[in-house]
């Protein structure tokens, strides 16, 4: 049995735009992306949405739904109240291209700055040996689907002021996945501190909260990286500041 629901969808481009209202028929079991597709097919053929798998595995359909960064394919309509208007807008941290689609190329540029794995030599029999307990944590980070919801919610990146100083949670976990990789022979600590700005994170855990893959970004990746940096460049003030107040200082 379908019901009619009210949607407010942001429409516009880099020059500006505003919210447009749509009344849409919603069937049981639908997710927000289904509703947007229905709007697109029936009411606004040129409504721009980015999506691919519709199963929470590719991280394409990120947007802000009632103010919260979410994957629209994994947001079921029954999480909202029966009369609640649903407001949908593009990610705030990145420039709008059109409607719900943003230009996330900044993230691809950050990824390219990170040096790839530098593998240790293979064993004499041609195998790499790694044990499950040693790769569990790296595998947690490699679950990342690059939806950039963490980047969107990160205080340093959200107003775009910090994008030249911090790579953001997504790439902190990528760095952590290399730094903690049992086969990696590279030393990444100096650049994690200097180039990638590990000190910028204030450990508010917002990124962890929005991660659709439930990766423990702050506790398992960022804090351990900060600790490795502090171990290398011991500075009691930075150390105490981080421990007590979550403040960091750039040197």
């Amino acid at each position: 049995m379908s019901t009619t629901r009210k949607f407010k969808i942001w429409r516009g481009d880099a020059q500006g735009g505003d919210f447009k209202e749509f009344d849409v028929d919603v069937d049981p079991g639908m997710v927000v992306l289904d509703v947007l597709h229905r709007v697109q097919a029936r009411q606004a053929n040129d409504l721009a949405i980015r999506w691919n798998c519709k199963a929470g595995k590719c991280g394409s359909c990120s947007m802000e739904i009632n103010g919260r960064p979410r994957l629209s394919c994994m947001t079921r309509m029954n999480v909202f109240g029966p009369d609640e208007t649903i407001t949908v807008q593009p990610l705030k941290a990145f420039p709008v291209i059109k409607d719900l689609v943003t230009d996330v190329s900044w993230n691809y540029r950050q990824n390219k700055r990170i040096r790839p794995l530098k593998p240790k030599p293979r064993d004499a029999d041609g195998e790499h040996r790694m044990y499950q307990e040693d790769v569990d944590r790296v595998q947690e980070f490699r679950k990342c689907i690059e939806c950039y919801l963490c980047q969107d919610t990160c205080h340093v990146l959200r107003d775009r002021g910090g994008q030249d100083r911090f790579v953001g949670p997504r790439f902190m976990i990528r760095l952590a996945s290399l730094e903690m990789h049992p086969l990696d022979a590279d030393d990444r600590i100096p650049e994690i501190r200097k180039e990638f700005g590990s000190g910028m994170c204030n450990i508010t855990r917002c990124c962890t909260e929005v991660c659709p893959e439930h990766i423990n970004i702050t506790d398992n990746a960022i804090i351990p990286l900060k600790e490795r940096v502090v171990d290398r460049y011991f500075d009691p003030i930075v150390y105490l500041g981080q421990k007590l107040f979550g403040i960091s200082k750039r040197r």
Binding site: P116, L117, P119, G126, E127, H128, R129, M130, Y131, Q132, V135, V138, Q139, R142, S177, L178, H181, L183
Partner: peptide, 18 residues
């Protein structure tokens, strides 16, 4: 498959680490 490991893939492991 083994070449992917060289490029950073982290497959699930056997008890022997393979």
């Amino acid at each position: 498959v083994k070449e992917l490991e060289e490029w950073g893939a982290v497959f699930d492991r056997t008890k022997e680490g393979l």
